[in-house]
């Protein structure tokens, strides 16, 4: 099939960006969306033009690198997948496809469709871990049984890939779902209890300090999340935060 692409081109954060139109031909429905972009880039290189920069790595939906806004939706029209898992059979011949970068002031544009998501690392660095040193003498892994449902909830929250679709789609550019997923993962486990108060306070403070917006319960983050991270995590984080604030003497 043949498509018309309207792609956001921007040389750097200092330059102004604009939508540029390209045409691509002979696209197979079995191609992935990024393979279609590869084909576009090959044709640009052949013409001596700068190819469209976009983040991508594993191309199997787990590294969280790919980050395109396609026809007004992060990761495109299908649910529960990343852009790299999107295939061209989701589009029709002759269609116009808009491709833009994540939109959030906390994710500044680096070039074209590539944005800077290092703010997410900073949120994790603020406390998204259990403070345990490497040791060959940790207690046996089966010493503390963990109810299956808690382990499963922890796992579900921990499947977040840090892609940033939640922030990009939120009208407030809130990072609540991302932050809540980590807090929920660790607070569902006995090992995460000791630091649970300090963790939630410092991660939420960091999130605010970095300029992410607040949550107004629109819920688009959970709808657009390629891993189906549930809104319940935000509720859990709010409970943890309240509990910690009441306890905290700081």
């Amino acid at each position: 099939m043949n498509l018309k692409l309207k792609v956001w081109r921007q040389e750097s954060s200092k330059h102004k960006g604009k939508i540029v139109e390209y045409k691509v031909h002979d696209i197979s429905p079995d191609m992935s969306f990024l393979e279609m972009m590869d084909q576009l880039n090959q044709s640009l290189i052949e013409k001596g033009q700068d190819p469209v920069a976009f983040d991508h790595d594993c191309r199997e939906g787990i590294c969280g690198s790919c980050s395109m806004y396609i026809n007004g939706q992060p990761h495109g029209p299908e649910n529960m997948i990343t852009t790299c898992q999107l295939h061209m059979r989701s589009f029709n011949d002759g269609e116009t496809v808009y491709i833009e970068p994540w939109r959030a002031s906390t994710f500044p544009i680096i070039k074209d469709l590539v944005v800077d998501r290092s703010a997410f690392d900073k949120i994790i660095q603020a406390g998204g871990y259990i403070s345990v040193n490497t040791s060959g003498n940790s207690q046996d892994a089966n010493a503390i049984p963990i109810p299956k449902e808690n382990a499963d909830s922890a796992f579900d929250a921990a499947t977040c890939i840090g892609c940033g679709a939640c922030v990009a789609t939120c009208k407030n550019s809130s990072a609540m779902l991302f932050t809540a997923a980590k807090i929920s993962h660790l607070s569902n486990l006995p090992q995460g209890q000791v630091e649970s108060s300090s963790r939630v306070i410092s991660m939420v403070n960091k999130m605010d300090e970095l300029g992410f917006g607040n949550c107004t319960n629109t819920g688009d983050c959970a709808v657009q999340c390629p891993k189906g991270i549930s809104l319940d995590n935000i509720a859990k984080m709010n409970r943890e935060y309240l509990k910690a604030s009441l306890k905290s003497e700081k």
């Binding site: 871990y129 259990i130 345990v132 490497t134 040791s135 940790s138 207690q139 046996d140 892994a141 049984p145 963990i146 299956k148 382990a151 499963d152 922890a154 796992f155 921990a158 993962h185 660790l186 569902n188 486990l189 090992q191 995460g192």
Partner: peptide, 14 residues
């Protein structure tokens, strides 16, 4: 396995 469980890696459980 001991180290990872201590870190909070959510392995599958029975």
């Amino acid at each position: 396995i001991d180290q990872c469980v201590a870190q909070g890696v959510p392995f599958a459980r029975e």
